[in-house]
Simulated scan of single mutants.
Amino acid sequence: MARAIWTGSVSFGLVNIPVGLFSATQEHQVHFHQFEKGTSSRIRNKRVNEDSGDEVDYDDIVKGAEVGDDEYVMLTQEELESVEPGTSRTIDISDFVEAAEIDPIFYQKSYFLAPTDETAKKAYALLVGAMDKAERVGVATFVMRGKQYLAAIRPKDGVLVLETMYFADEVRDPKKELDNLPGRASSRGKDLKMAVDLIETLTTSWNPKNYRDTYTERVEKLIDAKKKDRVVVTQPDREESEEKVVDLLAALQASVDTSKKHRAGNTQDVAPVRTRKRGPEDVDLDDLPKKQLVELAKELEIEGRSKMSAADLRKAITKAKSDRGGRRRRAS
């Protein structure tokens, strides 16, 4: 059962509805640790004084705001807490707007709002039904973890969804940030019509299940393959056509022609991850300790291996692998 990351109430006019806030999404992420190359020793981060090199306890660390070149104002945790937003536990809906009026660039992260007890369910259902019928989104502010948020609240399948949002001064102006934007496109011309035709050909109904995080899937398969002592066989990139299309209209026409068999989503034509048994030629010698180097040298039938240093073993193994590859090429 999910745990609420924040509890309080939604204020709707004179009505207060006790609610809990729950994460609505989770990101795909493969977690990696850091190791020193050639060993199994973890890398750890420490807080150190850059002048003395000594490690500093967390309780002895204060925050500093830069006010000039190498000039800082130091602030204690107590001082920061004194100017934090109030400890209000209310999500105060101040306005209702049409969803289409909010540019998606303002949205940050999605959460579910749920009633915290049986007595809140009736008022909660009333707010969901009223917003659904009015087809409006509630705009609210609230405080969570010492930070004030702007939020949009909307009904979805009988549940209130809260989207944290950026404030207006947190969204950058592209005209000020980007210096190479084209002028407004002409509304006439065959190339524009062809581009519109391409968009219409690729238009489909939105279905989130049509799209997958194929990169994370391939990373997970790579990890599984290495765990089973196998290597991944990658496919070569598609060769580019020698005759490159430089005419925009021709490129659009070619795109329209090839898009007639379009299927929605990003999962088609995704090359599968192929693996094969790992051999001596696949091993990164710098990653291996001496014990494993000796075992690999034994597999390659290298004489005198037990008396060699790790560096000598790597040289001998590299030479043996090279000789083996040469024999294979001559045999073929």
Score class of each variant (00 low, 15 high):
I302S: 09
D269A: 12
L252P: 13
H262L: 02
K260E: 15
K315N: 08
N266K: 02
D282P: 11
E303R: 12
S241M: 03
L252V: 06
A311S: 09
P280C: 00
L293D: 13
S255D: 11
L285D: 13
R278N: 00
D312R: 12
S255Q: 14
K307N: 10
K290V: 14
L248E: 06
M308V: 03
E299N: 06
G304T: 04
R263F: 09
G304I: 01
A254K: 15
V273G: 09
R263E: 15
E299S: 08
V256Y: 03
D247E: 15
S255A: 15
K244C: 03
G279L: 10
G304P: 08
Q268G: 10
D269F: 04
R274Y: 00
D257T: 14
D257C: 05
R274T: 01
A251F: 13
D247V: 14
Q268Y: 05
D269R: 07
L313D: 05
K298E: 04
V273S: 08
S255T: 08
G304M: 01
A264M: 08
D282G: 09
V273F: 06
R305C: 06
K261M: 03
M308K: 14
A297D: 03
D269N: 12
L248A: 12
G279T: 15
V294A: 01
V270Y: 02
S259N: 14
A250H: 09
A254W: 03
